[in-house]
């Protein structure tokens, strides 16, 4: 059985806590939307892009439909999906326009994936990637192990039964930056000089603090549906899926709990003879195009619930939203008394 998923490529606007809006290109989820209703999904790009959640061993067809960019009707750029990190990809499904095909406005392309390797990956458009990545065509891609079962603690794992990667809750830590002057140039049909790239906002899951912890969000954040607030019951194991699709290296620090690195770039850190090379960290350094899986155990704190653990970028100048501190890549982990929060069945579910 083949599972069908559909993504739109279009444009839209995102919001930062200083009240400014920024023009983006991006993806939207149009799975199951009838053809005659697709027009309603124009200009509704989301940042971060809707996650692609796959299971190892299953087959998927992801259809990319380019709905055009209403704010830039002059723009005839095609788009693609590049499944970043897919082992043994073939060129046709790799989404590189110079080495296969790309999707013009008004057209579709079907990408077939049969992922075999569980882990945290990412997807993005690869047409003029410097522009289309910065403009927002970026999202996480998760491959669950073939034996994944959210209802069985031994099988709710990042890398499969018996791999020591059991978890109770999982959250995205999806990192990128936004240079507002470049977004403004693109909105007004001008060519940026990319060597002058200079971010003004640093985002987790598409939002800058304090929007990162604004769970309801509301209409101001309708194109940014993913808060970055991490919640867990004391004693639970929490899996953080770090992805960096910005252009800078980042340094995410968690205070009050230790992060055990159990996955790097979608692979368990294992030597050639199966040596366990996992390690513990307070800060995850992550370069553009890398992913990390790290698990921490939510500490107990009787009489103190909910306990808050700060989680922020130790490159402290990135704790900034357009000149206002604290902002940018800052969020929180909130820990509740055992049994307070219900079972989590999907990533980021609070």
């Amino acid at each position: 059985m083949i599972t069908r998923i559909r993504r739109s490529a279009t444009d839209g606007w995102v919001n930062t806590p200083d009240g400014r809006t920024h023009y983006i290109f991006g993806f939207g989820d149009i799975s199951g939307v009838p053809e005659n209703e697709l027009v309603n999904y124009r200009a509704r790009a989301e940042l971060m892009a809707p996650p692609l959640l796959l299971k190892a061993g299953n087959e998927y067809i992801v259809t990319l439909t380019s709905l055009g960019t209403p704010t830039r009707p002059d723009l005839d750029d095609p788009h693609t999906i590049h499944y970043h990190g897919f082992p043994n990809q073939i060129a046709f499904y790799d989404g590189v326009p110079e080495a296969s095909v790309a999707v013009p406005v008004g057209r579709d392309l079907e990408y077939y994936y049969k992922p075999l390797d569980p882990g945290t990956y990412m997807y993005h458009c690869h047409h003029e990637p410097v522009e289309h990545i910065q403009m927002g065509m970026v999202g996480p891609l998760v491959v669950y192990p073939h034996d994944y079962d959210s209802s069985d603690p031994a099988y709710k794992t990042a890398y499969g039964y018996g791999t020591g990667t059991e978890y109770h809750r999982e959250y995205y830590v999806f990192l990128n930056e936004l240079d507002c002057s470049i977004h403004n140039l693109v909105a007004t049909v001008q060519e940026p000089d990319w060597t002058e790239y200079r971010p003004t906002y640093w985002l987790i899951n598409g939002r800058a603090y304090p929007d990162t912890i604004d769970t309801p969000g509301g209409s101001r954040l309708q194109s940014q549906p993913w808060p970055a607030l991490i919640k867990a019951n004391a004693g639970e194991r929490v899996l953080l899926r770090f992805v960096n699709l910005g252009f800078q290296q980042h340094a995410m620090e968690l205070l009050g709990a230790v992060l055990k690195v159990v996955g790097i770039d979608g692979m368990r850190p294992l030597g050639q003879n199966g040596e366990d090379l996992s390690y513990n960290k307070n800060i995850i350094y992550i370069a553009p195009g890398q992913s990390y899986d790290a698990i921490f155990t939510a500490p107990e704190a009787p009489d103190m619930y909910p306990l808050t653990l700060p989680f922020y970028n130790r490159n402290l100048i990135k704790n900034n939203s357009g000149g206002v501190e604290p902002g940018g890549m800052v969020t929180e982990v909130q820990i509740y008394a055992p049994g307070s929060l219900p079972h989590q069945t999907e990533p980021n579910q609070a």
Binding site: H84, G85, Q249, I264, D265, G266, M267, P269, L270, G271, Q272, N273, E275, L277, A287, P288, G289, Q290
Partner: peptide, 11 residues
């Protein structure tokens, strides 16, 4: 002890 590991992006 083998310390080699797989990556898709090497800094």
């Amino acid at each position: 002890t083998d310390l080699s590991y797989k990556r898709f992006t090497v800094l």
